[in-house]
Computed example of a mutant assay.
Amino acid sequence: MSVDLLTLYLLAIGTLLASAGLTVWEGRTYPKRGQELRILAAGYVTLALGCVAVMFRRDLPGISGAVVSNLLFLGGYLLILNGVAAFSGRQYRAFSIGLLVVMALIWVGGGPRWQDVVWAYVSAFPIAIASALTAREMLRCEGMEALHSRRIIVAVTGIHAALYLFRAIILPWLVLAYGPLVQPIAGKITLYEGVLYSVILPMTLLKLIREESHGHLLRESLTDYLTRLGNRRWFFEEGARVVGGRASQGPIAVLAFDLDQFKGINDLYGHKTGDQVLKSFAEIAQSVLGHKTVLARIGGEEFAALLVGHDALRAESLGDTVGKYFAETIATGAAGIGLRATVSVGLARYENKMPELIDILAAADQALYRAKSLGGNRLEVA
Rank of each mutant, 00 (worst) to 15 (best):
R113P: 00
S131Y: 05
Q91S: 14
V108E: 10
F56E: 03
G110T: 08
V122T: 15
F166A: 06
S64W: 05
S123I: 02
G158Y: 01
A146D: 11
R57V: 06
L47Y: 09
L74R: 00
P112R: 09
I80S: 08
T134Y: 10
M103L: 07
T134N: 06
I127D: 08
L47S: 14
S69Q: 08
A42E: 07
A85Q: 06
I106K: 05
W107H: 09
G62I: 05
P61K: 13
V117I: 15
S64L: 12
G111S: 03
G83M: 05
A53W: 03
A132V: 05
S96D: 00
L139H: 05
G50Q: 05
G65K: 02
G158I: 12
D59V: 05
A94S: 13
R90Y: 01
L105W: 02
Y121S: 03
N82W: 06
G110Y: 15
A146E: 10
V118H: 13
A130T: 09
I159N: 07
L79V: 01
G76P: 07
S131T: 15
I159Q: 10
L72D: 02
G143Y: 04
R136V: 14
M55D: 06
V154C: 13
M103N: 15
F166D: 07
F95P: 09
A168Q: 13
T46N: 09
W114R: 12
G98W: 11
L100I: 08
P126H: 11
L40N: 02
L40D: 08
L105E: 04
G89H: 15
T134P: 00
R150C: 09
R90W: 01
D116I: 01
E142Q: 14
C51Y: 10
G76A: 08
A132M: 06
R167D: 11
I127Q: 14
V118G: 00
L79Y: 09
F166H: 10
A85K: 14
Y77T: 12
A104D: 05
D59C: 00
G110A: 13
A128Y: 04
V54M: 10
L79M: 13
A168N: 06
G110K: 10
W114C: 02
L49V: 12
E137L: 08
R93L: 14
W119M: 12
F166C: 10
L74S: 15
L49N: 06
G109M: 07
S149E: 11
F95I: 03
C141K: 12
I129P: 06
F87Q: 01
M138A: 14
W107D: 00
